[in-house]
Amino acid sequence: MLFARTRRPVSTFRHSLTRPAVAIGVGLGLVLSTGAGAVAATAADSFATPLRAITNDAKATLVDAEATLDEAAEVSADAASPDLDLKATDTTIDTAGLRSEIAVLSDLELLPTFVLTDVADATAEEAAAVEAQTARLQDAVDDAQAAKQAAAEKAAKKAAEKKRVAEAKKKAAAKAAKEAAALANVNTVAGAQATAARMAADTYGWGSGEFSCLVSLWSKESGWNYQAYNAGSGATGIPQALPGSKMASAGSDWQTNAATQIKWGLDYISRAYGSPCSAWGHSQSVNWY
Rank of each mutant, 00 (worst) to 15 (best):
G35R: 04
A36I: 06
G37W: 04
G37K: 11
V39Y: 06
V39M: 13
V39I: 14
V39N: 01
A40I: 01
A41P: 01
A41I: 00
A43F: 03
A44N: 02
A44M: 03
D45Y: 01
F47S: 12
A48K: 11
A48M: 00
T49E: 14
P50L: 06
R52H: 08
A53D: 10
A53C: 03
T55M: 02
T55A: 11
N56P: 00
D57S: 11
A60G: 08
A60I: 14
A60S: 13
T61N: 05
D64V: 04
A65V: 08
E66R: 12
T68D: 14
T68C: 09
T68K: 04
T68R: 05
D70R: 11
D70E: 15
E71Y: 01
A72E: 12
A73C: 03
E74H: 11
V75H: 07
V75S: 07
V75C: 04
S76H: 02
A77W: 04
A77H: 07
A77T: 04
A77S: 13
D78E: 15
D78W: 14
A79Y: 11
A80L: 03
S81P: 09
P82D: 15
P82S: 14
D83Q: 12
L84F: 07
D85K: 07
D85Y: 05
L86N: 12
L86V: 09
L86W: 06
K87G: 13
A88G: 08
A88T: 15
D90W: 10
D90R: 01
D90C: 12
T91V: 13
T91P: 04
T91F: 05
T92V: 13
I93T: 06
I93R: 06
D94Y: 12
D94A: 14
D94E: 08
D94W: 05
T95N: 07
T95H: 02
T95F: 03
A96E: 10
A96N: 06
G97V: 11
G97S: 13
G97K: 13
G97E: 15
L98Q: 10
R99I: 06
S100F: 12
E101N: 10
E101S: 03
E101Q: 10
E101G: 01
I102N: 09
I102V: 14
A103N: 13
A103H: 04
A103I: 00
L105R: 09
D107C: 06
L108D: 03
L108T: 10
L108K: 09
E109A: 10
L111R: 08
L111N: 03
L111Q: 12
L111P: 05
F114S: 00
F114H: 07
T117D: 14
D118N: 04
D118Q: 14
V119I: 15
A120M: 00
D121I: 06
A122W: 05
A122E: 06
T123F: 09
T123E: 08
T123A: 09
E125L: 13
E125P: 02
E126Y: 00
A127I: 03
A127D: 04
A127Q: 01
A128V: 11
A128R: 13
A129H: 13
A129Q: 07
E131S: 14
E131P: 00
A132K: 05
Q133V: 09
Q133F: 03
T134Q: 07
A135K: 13
A135N: 05
A135M: 11
R136S: 06
Q138F: 08
A140Q: 07
A140R: 08
V141C: 10
D143H: 15
D143N: 09
A144S: 10
Q145W: 11
Q145I: 07
